[in-house]
Nucleic acid binder design. Structure first.
Lengths: 212, 212
DNA sequence: CGTGCGATGTATCGGTCCGATACATCGCGG
DNA sequence: CCGCGATGTATCGGACCGATACATCGCACG
């Protein structure tokens, strides 16, 4: 999971660890709290050992400016390699059953802009199936085993069931949109300007690179 | 987390591992898939080493019936000790910040019937605060950083934000109910009979014990 | 002028939990 | 009588988290 997310992010621009964590937190804020350095740094090392990312020397800001006043410590900048991009492609193409659990699905979804439409559809349908199964399980418990459980446990199940039904509906919409070839509809709150409809293989000049 | 759930379940009746997993899955189905034996068995051993649970010999079905025909293998039945019950009480009382993340909250909530009202209220409010923070984070991203993110990532955040708002409302209701001294309202779908209002320290004759 | 504090930044360690795997028994239907 | 799905116990490697340590930078406040 982390491996996938890192490879995905580094395709947008090179970054160092701290920055990576921030971007990751922003992009995945909806599904997980904040990834830990205790997994981030070891994973970076693993990816580097596999040749999927490399350390790029921190650019000393237009060459000889700020020469060595304070010894320029730290700041290891990572960038993705060609092999890394290939690996990312593989990870997308695989999209096995583990892609359908909460975290796995969320992470893959966050990188749908780099995923081809057929795979997007496959993942959305796999996820829907999984949620439908969970929903049926909850209905069973609420129906058959209701009297065995206390009121709080039942309330928890009811809330969970509600969330399942909601997510299935959400997925249905997304699937319908995919089939009709449109990008995810943004008819909601009109935040900022008009209807950008950039779609699957994203406009490649999308780098974003603000370093003061 | 697992430790807490096991101690909670074993207070209802002694069980062996497999049974424990099934009950756990039923009770926590709304929040996590199914706990793994790879964590269940080691945890059981840990709890046993700490003296919080003990192995109870499998009852050979009315003494000398079925004597040794097939060597009576396996089936290690665990039961909670007095120290274990005390430990469970401590774990409830602590209810630190880790109690407010998704899994931690869910597990604690599932055992609210064994939790005093003051603690219930504290946990619900802590959880609400945490979700409100997540909600604000998502609003920020959707507001400030919207143009930096692709349409899919934004859609994910929007869905997450919706879930947050929904959960806050749910928590508000539960908190209001707690304050008014009522059990969780079940005004919803009229599954089965009338208004049972068993509350906090649950009617102790609640064992449930169907072994054929 | 300094001093302390919050953000930036890299890194490790112990522990929890998962997923895959192995293996054995039981009861039932084909 | 044979296989298959449910019941049942158990281990191993790996992913990830939470706490912790430590160092630098810029700025606000006294």
């Amino acid at each position: 999971m982390l491996e996938f997310a890192i490879l995905g992010l580094l395709q947008e621009s090179p970054m160092h660890g701290y920055e990576l964590r921030k971007e990751l937190t922003a992009k995945l804020g909806a599904i997980r709290a904040a990834i830990s350095y205790g997994s981030l740094y070891p994973t970076l090392r693993r990816l580097q050992a596999a040749g999927w990312i490399t350390e790029a020397a921190e650019t000393p800001v237009t060459a000889e400016e700020v020469p060595a006043l304070t010894s320029r410590r730290g700041r290891v900048v990572y960038k993705i390699t060609a092999e890394g991009k290939e690996r990312f492609g593989q990870l997308i193409a695989q999209a096995g059953p583990e892609t359908y659990d909460d975290t796995g699905f969320g992470v893959h979804f966050a990188f749908f802009a780099r995923t081809d439409q057929a795979t997007r559809l496959r993942i959305l349908e796999g996820r829907r199936r999984k949620i439908e199964e969970r929903r049926e399980g909850l209905r069973d418990v609420l129906g058959r085993a209701a009297e065995r459980l206390d009121a709080y446990t039942l309330e928890l199940q009811r809330h969970g069931l509600d969330a399942c039904e909601r997510e299935v509906r959400w997925l249905e919409e997304l699937i319908a949109n995919e089939r009709s070839g449109r990008a995810p509809t943004v008819p909601n709150i009109g935040t900022a300007g008009g209807r950008r409809e950039d779609n699957s293989p994203p406009p490649p000049g999308e780098t974003r690179n603000e370093r003061p």
